[in-house]
Design a protein around this nucleic acid. Structure first.
Length: 466
RNA sequence: GGCCCGGUCGUCUAGUGGACUAGGACGCAGCCCUUUCAAGGCUGAUAUCGCGGGUUCGAAUCCCGCCCGGGCUACCA
């Protein structure tokens, strides 16, 4: 990608604090950070909080939390400051006002006194006549008298708007199709298509990397930049959207997977989620699928980014997460498991870890595998000969040192004496101790439990020996 | 409706005119291993490359039309 040496790379994400931290925000942040790191650039976080209705300060914290969890840390932002502070749009109102006044005095924008109802009528009229809607320019040509509430509209100059998209190549839009759009709302707040380009320009953003939903917004923003006399960002990149499993657009109500924090709760590793997100929309052209962040920085390029939206797939995420879990050292895994196993102490978790490792798609899966350690299982109904083997096992285990190796050896004598397959002995023990047919290997399953507890559960099933 | 962006196994994708009898991964099935479940190893099934026309000796790849999906078209971002 052509990145000029003269201007250092500056990128940004601009989430809106209108709800939980968004999966898409994480994805966009990832690509921005990768690009910044690859070019020794700066990554800024700007909070686009110009929607007074939907905006909540606590949601800003939620965004920070989600991004921090993923390790997607920013160099400049509302909480960190930076050379272009403030980084909250609600604190930059005077900046937008200045720029709006400049546009107004230069005749590149005008006040619009139309009411919402009037505009609505205009739009419906156009619809009824089946012609594409564009604002009538009534307030430019013949403004109504005696009104005080107004918006500021940008006077679209017309002509072709061209720009380079690092993913899609040369883009061209006919601005003749775009009506004069509102740049300052009647409440004095700027609209997105005004605040965003003004901030990008004043914050000296060099590359705008964002979701594909903004592709059509780009000509609006470019016209604003141009008429303000600012230099344009050197390039844009519009990343493919993450679609729901059924191919539809994700919605907050129907798709909980949109919520970033859900992944932490379910026990996905942040680095695995990042890996999955990177792969959803990009591939290196090789068969590699597992990447560290540093490898992504090294390998990523926009010309290998997908052009179409990709569906979110839990199965693939689970697989990647499992790969990361299996690659973890025991003590690292144990540490990450701890929050998901509040009933157990550190030492127990660490002892369980080797047996857990190949059995987890996500950290929260550990609970179902170990809950027999803090829950008394219902004793299973066993065949008489199985009960005999449990008795034999109790006898063999009586004086054994309580660790997997010794337990295994003792149990094998019972297996051999039975003349049957190992499972004929192990399964009844497993059921007696855990109440389930599935558990880690029996020696681990037993060793994790205090010996007295294990023996007591066996005794419950075995009844009194005589 | 208008303008934009897309359309290869169920899913993510490789593929840029001949090496494609369309490759990989997830998932799925079977086998091996085995102490249940996993993990691991091996094998396998699943794609008339959205549809229809061209261009060409030859098209998933180029052109046109259509269909389908998505985005924008807001005093949301």
């Amino acid at each position: 990608m052509a990145v000029s040496d003269s201007s250092p790379v500056r990128v940004r994400i601009a989430p809106s604090p209108t709800g939980f931290a968004h999966l898409g925000t994480a994805s966009t942040a990832l690509y921005n950070l990768i690009f910044a790191r690859a070019h020794g650039g700066t990554f800024a976080l700007r909070v686009d909080d110009t929607d007074v209705e939907r905006n909540r300060p606590e949601y800003e914290q939620v965004i920070y939390e989600g991004l921090h969890w993923l390790g997607l840390d920013w160099d400049e932002g509302p909480d960190k400051g930076g050379p272009h502070a403030p980084y909250r749009q609600s604190e930059r109102l005077d900046v937008y006002k200045q720029h709006a006044v400049k546009l107004l005095t230069e005749g590149k924008a005008y006040k619009c006194f139309c009411t919402a109802d009037e505009l609505d009528a205009e739009r419906k009229q156009a619809q009824a006549e089946k012609r594409p809607y564009k604002y009538s320019r009534r307030c430019l040509n013949n403004p109504p008298e005696g009104r005080s509430e107004f918006t500021v509209r940008f006077k679209v100059p017309g002509g072709e708007v061209k720009f380079t998209d690092m993913i899609r190549g040369e883009m061209s839009f006919d601005s003749g199709l775009i009506g004069d759009f509102i740049v300052v709302k009647s409440d004095g707040f700027p609209t997105y298509n005004f605040a965003s380009p003004v901030d990008d320009a004043t914050m000296e953003i060099t590359h705008v990397i964002r979701g594909e939903e903004h592709l059509s917004n780009t000509p609006y923003q470019l016209m604003v930049v141009d008429s303000l006399g600012y230099a344009r960002p050197s390039a844009y990149a519009h990343m493919p959207l993450i679609l729901a499993n059924d191919g539809s657009k994700m919605s907050k109500r129907k798709h909980p997977e949109l919520n970033l924090m859900l992944y932490r709760e379910k026990g996905y590793l942040p680095e695995a989620l990042l890996n999955y997100l990177a792969l959803l929309g990009w591939n290196p052209g090789t068969q590699q699928e597992i990447f560290s962040f540093d490898q992504l920085v090294e390998l990523f390029s926009f010309d290998r980014v997908q052009h179409g939206g990709a569906r979110f797939d839990w199965e693939k995420l689970n697989w990647i997460n499992g790969e990361y879990i299996r690659a973890l050292d025991d003590d690292q895994l144990a540490r990450r498991l701890a929050p998901f196993l509040p009933q157990l102490d550190e030492a127990t978790i660490l002892r369980a870890t080797p047996a857990l490792k190949t059995r987890l798609a996500k950290l929260s899966d550990a609970e179902a595998l170990l809950d027999y350690l803090w829950t008394d299982p219902a004793p299973p109904a066993l065949e008489a000969d199985a009960v005999d083997r449990v008795r034999a096992a109790m006898a063999a285990l009586q004086d054994v040192q309580w660790e997997p190796g010794a337990i295994h050896d003792a149990l094998m004598t019972v297996v051999e004496a039975s003349g049957l397959g190992p499972n004929k002995t192990f399964m009844p023990i497993r059921q007696a101790v855990t109440g389930k047919k599935i558990s880690p290997p029996i020696d681990y399953t037993l060793a994790l439990l205090p010996k007295e507890v294990a023996m007591a559960r066996l005794a419950t099933v075995a009844g009194s020996p005589d």
